[in-house]
Design a protein around this nucleic acid. Structure first.
Length: 319
DNA sequence: CGTATGCCCTGCGCGC
DNA sequence: TGCGCGCAGGGCATAC
């Protein structure tokens, strides 16, 4: 299940592999995988575009696309959800089952979106319409002024018009516009976290999974951060002391950094764009370790259900 | 507004 | 060996 470290791992490997590549063709094999524009428009819209940048915001991954025909840069938005994979493979490789979108690149390679469970989604939109989200994701538009002469200029269309962006905007996931701060940025401070938790009765785990509070945490890293800060996942958020909030804030940063450093957690599906699994799984201290001894105190790790999710914790360390 | 629930979807592991 | 069932869960619609 790709969370922030897994999405960042995919972004980094994609940047190595496809930055500067040109898109030669697009085939949408499963229409449900694309939110917008309609599947039939992808080929014309993307063919000839160059991949000029990568970005990430929470669990959303972005590729910046520079199409010489268009006045504005575009963005390919990807959410991997549970089992989505973005793979770069030789273009003549047989299509793996559940390959929903196939993007042919210069150099005879394919960028493929493969997703067993079909929860993942792709979209193309004008970069300008991502607004502040684009900047927060680390995307910067490139100018078309330099590579157009007067004749070409008159034929340039705006990406907004080409994409019928009103429809595109309607189709985008609403959660994209309400993401909380990046947990590894300066915006995510202990005092911000304290303000968000103040007076809240909900279990701390449920709030940490809410992308509006902080962007990019999922089930794995929430369980790990709560273990490392010695807080029971069912604790009422408003009952956390200042010391506990400081510990939690620190643990969130550490566990995410560690996840990125080890290139993500692989249980079954997750791989980066070179199909390499991540090594963080063996570093996890409680997630999917029910029945094993707690690495700190030896007590048997338990698994319960909280906020609709499997929840792992040490009943002794996390009082 | 805050919170709880069900849905989407496929593969896998379990019990019989 | 085969079959059916439950589980896995991110995000969102819906209900209260």
């Amino acid at each position: 299940m790709p969370e922030l470290p897994e999405v960042e791992t995919v972004r980094l490997s994609l940047a190595e592999q496809v930055l500067g590549a040109e898109i030669e063709g697009v085939q949408v094999h499963h229409p449900d995988a694309v939110l917008a524009p309609p599947p039939g428009r992808w080929q014309d819209l993307l063919a000839g575009a160059a991949i000029t940048g990568t970005g990430r915001r929470g669990k959303y991954l972005f590729l910046a696309l520079h199409q010489p025909n268009l006045a504005d840069d575009m963005v390919l938005l990807v959410h991997l959800r549970m089992t989505g994979r973005l793979l770069v493979v030789p273009g003549d490789e047989p299509l793996e089952k559940h390959t929903h979108v196939q993007i042919g690149l210069s150099g005879g390679r394919d960028l493929r979106f493969v997703d067993t469970r079909r929860f993942g989604r792709l979209a193309v939109l004008p970069m300008a319409h991502l607004g502040p989200v684009a900047a927060a994701a680390g995307l910067a538009p490139s100018s078309n002024d330099e590579d157009l002469d007067g004749g070409a200029r008159s034929s340039v269309k705006e990406a907004a018009a080409a994409l019928d962006w009103f429809q595109v905007r309607e189709a985008l996931p609403p959660g994209l516009w309400t993401l909380g701060p990046e947990p590894l940025s300066r915006d995510f401070t202990p005092s911000y976290l304290a303000r968000q938790l103040e007076g809240r009765k909900a279990p701390i785990k449920r709030l940490l999974l809410d992308q509006r509070l902080v962007a990019g945490l999922g089930n794995i890293y929430v369980d790990e951060a709560l273990f490392r800060s010695r807080i029971h996942p069912a604790r009422s958020a408003g009952s956390l002391t200042r010391a506990e909030i400081r510990r939690l804030h620190k643990a969130i940063g550490q566990v995410l950094q560690e996840g990125i450093a080890w290139r993500g957690t692989t249980f079954s599906d997750f791989v980066d764009s070179e199909s390499r699994p991540g090594d963080m799984g063996r570093r996890l201290q409680v997630f999917r370790r029910q029945g094993e001894p707690c690495p700190k105190c030896g007590t048997t790790i338990e698994k319960t259900r909280l906020a609709g999710r499997g929840t792992h914790f040490c009943p002794r360390c996390q009082a």
